[in-house]
Design a protein around this nucleic acid. Structure first.
Lengths: 154, 154
DNA sequence: CTGCCTGCAAACTCTTTGCACGAAT
DNA sequence: ATTCGTGCAAAGAGTTTGCAGGCAG
């Protein structure tokens, strides 16, 4: 699942910033890019430890900001206490909104290009320059409420 | 600043839910509705204690969900660790987006009626029913970056 | 009077940090 | 050889909770 080009992006970013390409950082990177869904820091720790069992919680927490800064990871905060992350594969630059199902606990991502336009329109009216924007919809699952089971997880 | 009609809404909500109108809850309510800006749980505790110094942190935290459920308060989570609250005065039902200034730390609220439309459009495509939506823009202050001081706080 | 509410303090969750050792350049 | 990076465990911030006593209805 790991795309070599992405790993190379990570190495380059590390070198450029004068940071070292340690085994732990690479293991965390590989673990993150093996995921197809959103994951938490704690889950990433578990995944990374399968690759390199010397990885510690502290290093995961120290590496996450590095990976989000380098735009390799996208941070998603749905206001639930813990933050979620998701690999940002090569070339992904689309603005996305999240739809969070309160029944499934799943996070769907939907392209929402207008967000950027809204952000700059509204910011400039206030004399501000937009840095980022996020749009989140929380919703419940019709099927689950009717049949007691969510088709998206069985 | 407290609008009696709002206080009455709170009393009614309490009664309907079989909850008691204690001095502490009323003090917390009054403190919240004396605010014109966003505030945190900790600030609310300070404000409420001016009115009734017997109010405890625990009761503030226990009362906040009651007030947000009754739509008297709006909860704003900008992903900064602590949550912010703001009185939702009588009749306020407009969908709002937040613009958070990373220099000022201020939260501006902007009407964004299209959010509701977006939420239901996107949800229905996934077989979901929208519960709520939030749109947040984080931005920096042009004046502050250029002159070193933010005109909105001097 | 009954039992919901309260204050207190301890517990909890997620994340950050100080320190001495270890490894990448 | 130098640093930067690491694991460990403790600290931190914000919020929640168990308990025994207190007050609203």
């Amino acid at each position: 699942m790991t795309i070599p080009a992405d790993r190379e992006r990570f190495r380059k970013f590390l070198t450029k910033k004068g940071l070292r390409a340690t085994n732990q950082r690479l293991a965390i990177f590989d673990a993150a890019f093996a995921q197809t869904e959103h994951f938490t820091a704690e889950q990433l720790l578990d995944y990374a430890r399968i690759i390199d069992d010397s990885v510690s919680r502290a290093t995961v927490y120290r590496t996450l900001p590095i990976m989000t800064e380098s735009a390799l990871l996208r941070e998603v905060d749905i206001g639930s206490g813990e933050k979620f992350y998701r690999p940002n594969r090569e070339g992904d630059r689309t603005q996305v909104a999240q739809v969070v199902c309160v029944d499934c606990d799943r996070i769907f991502e939907i392209s929402a290009p207008f967000m950027e336009w809204y952000g700059s329109t509204v910011s400039s009216k206030l004399g501000l320059t937009p840095v980022s924007q996020r749009l989140q919809v929380s919703a419940y699952c019709n099927a689950f409420r009717q049949t007691g089971s969510c088709p998206r997880r069985g």
